[in-house]
Design a protein around this nucleic acid. Sequence first.
DNA 1: TGAACTAATTAGATTATATCTAATGTGAAA
DNA 2: TTTCACATTAGATATAATCTAATTAGTTCA
Lengths: 141, 141
Amino acid sequence: MDVDAIKRTLEGSGLRCTPQRYAVMAFLMEHPKHPTAAEIFQAVNRLDPRSSRATIYNNLSDLVRAGLVREVAVEGRAARFDAKGMRHHHFICDRCGNVEDMEWYDVPKPASGSLGKRVLRECELIFRGLCTKCAPRHASR
Amino acid sequence: MDVDAIKRTLEGSGLRCTPQRYAVMAFLMEHPKHPTAAEIFQAVNRLDPRSSRATIYNNLSDLVRAGLVREVAVEGRAARFDAKGMRHHHFICDRCGNVEDMEWYDVPKPASGSLGKRVLRECELIFRGLCTKCAPRHASR
DNA sequence: TGAACTAATTAGATTATATCTAATGTGAAA
DNA sequence: TTTCACATTAGATATAATCTAATTAGTTCA
C-alpha cells in the first residue's frame, strides 16, 4: 500500500492527510492485527513525528466516523481497531481478548416487523471461543 | 419470578445465594434492559442490604462465569449486563449506546477449515443502527 | 504574498470504568 | 464450638478514554 493510495483514501473521505493521521491509518493497514489505541500510540511514536495520546484517539475516532476503520469493543479490555478492507467477521478469544478476522458470511436480516422504528445500519457476526494460542492451554485455566 | 426459583438457579450453578448476589440476579431478571454495573449498583442499593461496588462487580463476574448472565461490551461506554433467558441477539444504538433484544436467528457456522485450531464456543449476531428513541432525531445530530 | 480563518495537535489534567487490597464478616460442616 | 472457605466492605489503585486551553499548521482568498 503506497503513500498516495492512503492519501487518496483519507482525502476521499474528507480527511486531511496529516502526518499523524497518515501514520495511524498506515499502521492499521499494515498491521491487520486489531491493535489497541495504546499499541498504535507506541508503534507510530517509534517513528517521527511524535503523536500525543489525544491525537491518536482523535484520529481513530475521525477514521471510525469516516467509515475507514472499525472499532471492536471487547469485554473488560481496551477497544481494538481494524482498517476496513474486505468484509469479514471477527473471532474474539475468551481468554486473551485477541481479535482475529473470520471469513465473511451473509447474515440473516431481521424481519422489518421486528425492527419497528429502528434504523438498521449493519449486522455483525462475532465468534467467541479460544484462539489458536490459547486453545491448547484450555485445561490449565 | 419467585425467590426460590432464583435461589435454585444460583445454587444449581454452584453459587451461594447471598443477599447481595440474589439482589443482582433478581434485578437483572426483572429489568431486562441491559443495565450497566453502575445502574445495578444504584438500583440494588435503593433496597437493603447495601452492596459495595466491588461486590456488584464480583457478583456480576461470578454470574457471567457461571453462564447465567451475559456481558455486552459497547464501544466507548460501560459494559451492559443481561440475564440469559431465551436465546436472542442484540441491537446496539449508535447514538445512545442502549442495547435491546432482537429475536433469535440461527447463525452461520464457520467451516471447520476456517476455524483451524480455534475452539468455538458461541456465535453472536449484533445489529447496529438507531434505536426507536434516537431514529427520529437522526438529522439533528 | 500574507491576513484571517479553520483544522489539527499537544501535554497534561480529568473523568469514567473497573479491579485490587487487606480487613472483616458469614455460613456450613466437622 | 471451632474451623475454613467464601463473601463482603471501603477505599485505594489501575486502566482507558476524553477534555482543556494553548499552540501550530494548513487553506483560502483578497
